[in-house]
Design a protein around this nucleic acid. Structure first.
Length: 278
DNA sequence: ACCCAGGCGACGA
DNA sequence: TCGTCGCATGGG
């Protein structure tokens, strides 16, 4: 077991608000308030520790501090973002509702498949389908699960090659419905052309979006979620049913201009706020 | 029984 | 290019 402390230096970050706000689906809150999850094929436990986050690996291997700073986007000053957002009264209310939300930098393929699953679906069911997907086809994580005492070790998110080798019958137990076909087709496309991932990550946002839209099961909303959560394009602004309602009601004149270059981050505050109300 | 969920692809005009 | 519509599944 290995632990590292990630200093926050006054940067806002709430584990609960960040890990359970609908951008990531595999973190679980433990009875002691810590969170356990699988990232990069390894099990970790996260706990708040004053002005720091304690990251403990379940496999005993070293915890890469640089990785976690990047995961939590600690290079972005949310203190500054909040200050700018709060100049707008409505956006200020959204931020105040859950000021500890940060937009994570997650794995591209995991985000891509997860948000294909998310379409026309609700969050508890999205989580359940993803967990079954990982249980069925993900690689084992090394060592003991850090969180649950007697719970079975959780598995990594499956690799594209693994999912590409499967048939619709294999996915039937996931109960993913018509999305199963999208999962297979997208996984095959990436498995057959791995270079496309570098092409996407290296492209300007409009070009990256255009490529993403070619995958079956990826439309404008899912593409924007992948850009935002899986590619660190914080200007991407996913519009789902909640945001559509919230924008009409809270921001009929559009997003405040100071939020436009980080529209996706503002979107998370608005999404969270809207979902709590309506 | 109906409606809805972090929508999308196919199809027709 | 733009609306409509069907879509698997499960919870309210």
């Amino acid at each position: 077991m290995s632990t590292a402390k990630i200093a926050l230096r006054g940067e806002p970050l709430s584990l609960r608000e960040t890990l359970d706000c609908g951008q990531a689906f595999r973190w679980r809150e433990e009875s002691d308030g810590s969170f356990s999850g699988i990232v990069g094929g390894r099990a970790f436990n996260l706990s708040a520790d004053g002005d720091a986050i304690s990251v403990t690996s379940g496999d005993g291997l070293a915890v890469d501090e640089t990785f976690w700073k990047n995961y939590f986007a600690l290079d972005i000053s949310y203190s500054d973002l909040h200050k700018a957002y709060r100049k707008d009264e409505v956006l200020s209310r959204c931020v105040d509702f859950a000021p500890g939300i940060r937009v994570l930098r997650q794995d591209f393929f995991e985000v891509l498949i997860s948000f294909i699953i998310s379409q026309n679906n609700n969050i508890p069911r999205i989580k359940a389908i993803i967990e079954r997907l990982c249980d069925s086809f993900g690689d084992e994580t090394g060592g003991d699960e850090t969180g649950g005492a007697a719970s079975a070790p959780r598995r990594a998110f499956p690799l594209p090659e693994r999912l590409a080798s499967l048939s619709p019958d294999d996915l039937a137990p996931l109960r993913a419905g018509y999305r199963a076909e999208f999962i297979l087709r997208t996984s095959r496309a990436i498995s057959e052309n791995p270079d496309i991932v570098r092409e996407i990550t290296g492209a300007e946002t409009p070009k990256a979006r255009e490529i993403l839209l070619r995958f079956h099961g990826v439309g404008p909303k899912v593409a924007d979620c992948v850009l935002l959560f899986g590619l660190g394009r914080f200007e991407a602004f996913p519009v789902d049913v909640w945001i559509k309602r919230a924008m009409a009601q809270l921001f009929p004149g559009g997003l405040p201009p100071q939020a436009c270059s980080t529209a996706g981050i503002a979107q998370q505050y608005i999404f969270n706020y809207a979902r709590s109300l309506m």
